[in-house]
Simulated scan of single mutants.
Amino acid sequence: MRSGFNPNKDQLVPPSKYLHQVVVPVHIPHQTDYFKESLSILQFCLDSLTATVQPFTLITVVNNGSCEAVVQELNRRHHEGTIHEIIHTTAIGKVNALLKGLVGHQTPLVTLTDADVLFKPGWQEETIDLFEKVERIGAVGLIPQMNLFRIDGFSLVWEYLFSSRLRFAKIPDVAAAERFYDSIGWNRNYNPNHLLYNLQYTENGKSMWVGSGHVVTTFRRDVFREIQQSVPHQLGGDSEWYLEEKPYQFHYHKVTTASNFAFHMGNVSESWMEVPSTMPKTSTRTHIALSPSAPKINRVAYYWRYRFWRRIMMNTPLLFRWCILRKGLPKSVIDSW
């Protein structure tokens, strides 16, 4: 039976004090073999995250079928208040865990990050600055990677192919770039020139690399105005691309910060991994000034630009060579690119 009237009926959800959400999916099913040091890596990740964000940040962790030791660690942090929201699920897959964390909030920005990312001071400030100063940015990554413009930055190549805003530039921190590829298990037998130059875009005094990876990326929330119920893969397959293509459905651009503002740690603790000192929690920011939301483009326009023409331009040797030569890549490295 029911007695009385529920006071919440027909009431609007009160405005949130948060401007930026960070969603961290965690899958550590046991503490042996591949996952032997994963709990320590997770602690580095969460400690660095809480040390480098301002109070307007909502931290959501989705426990994606982890073992009891991880559950206890996450519950402890939630009880202390360093994690604001925790969702416990069975092993439903990384992207499905991210989708669970996304819904229910209205922050203008949302960062989706792996649980093995070490955040550096200033990442949040630089990310917000890019969104506010550069028109039509839909996603900002924190870890510069080589050749992203060929796969994940074609919107800028398409629009600024004949503009001086888009030029190749030298990568300032080659050691940090090498560290990323070490962390994902690559041998150093890749083309070394790919770590010396990258395609850079400049607008309103801000420079950034073209494209963004999927290890840690901040999105405009409005790109997720339409999301599906679930994706079929635990990890990999086309599940990552489901999120990565979202900005292009609105003709937004994807970029990465000019400096390395995060490190991918992998699954083995190393001596260089240090949690930064806690930044002063002094921000009085009450809003993030994003450009107006863009309408979703139709499916034909999306495939014409981001599938058909991207493949033609980036996979036709003569056309690609002309493109990188026009964008200022030195002739001395073009032949070996």
Rank of each mutant, 00 (worst) to 15 (best):
G213I: 00
Y160R: 01
S212F: 06
G185T: 12
G213D: 07
L161G: 08
T202S: 10
I171R: 06
N193F: 10
G185A: 10
V174T: 11
G185P: 15
R225C: 12
L195I: 13
I184L: 01
L161N: 13
A175K: 14
A176T: 04
F219P: 05
H194L: 12
Y160W: 04
R165G: 00
V216H: 00
S163R: 03
R188I: 15
F180V: 08
K170L: 13
V157K: 12
L166Y: 05
I184F: 00
N193E: 14
Y181G: 08
S163I: 01
L156W: 08
V210H: 07
K170P: 03
V174S: 07
W158D: 14
F219R: 09
L166R: 07
L156S: 02
W209H: 08
G211C: 14
Y190E: 15
T202C: 10
S163G: 04
N204M: 07
R225H: 14
A175P: 03
E203D: 14
N189H: 09
R167M: 01
L161E: 06
F154M: 05
R165T: 03
V215R: 08
R188L: 13
L196R: 11
R188K: 15
R220W: 02
N193C: 03
D222S: 15
S155N: 15
G185W: 15
F168K: 01
P192I: 11
D222H: 11
N187F: 03
F154G: 06
Y190W: 15
Y201N: 09
F154R: 08
F162C: 08
Y181N: 06
N198K: 12
L196Q: 07
L199D: 06
M208I: 07
K170A: 14
A169I: 00
I184S: 05
N191V: 15
G213E: 12
G205E: 01
K170E: 13
L166G: 06
R188P: 15
N198V: 00
F162I: 02
F224T: 02
D173E: 02
G213P: 11
H214S: 12
A169Q: 13
I184C: 04
R225K: 11
N198I: 03
D173M: 02
A175S: 10
F224Y: 01
F168G: 07
H194S: 13
R167I: 03
V223H: 01
F162G: 01
E159L: 04
L156Q: 00
V157H: 06
R225P: 09
T218F: 12
T202P: 08
M208H: 00
Y181F: 15
N191P: 10
S207L: 09
R220M: 00
S163Y: 04
K170Q: 14
T217S: 10
R188V: 15
W158V: 09
A176F: 05
R220I: 05
R179V: 06
R179S: 14
G205W: 04
A176Y: 04
N191I: 15
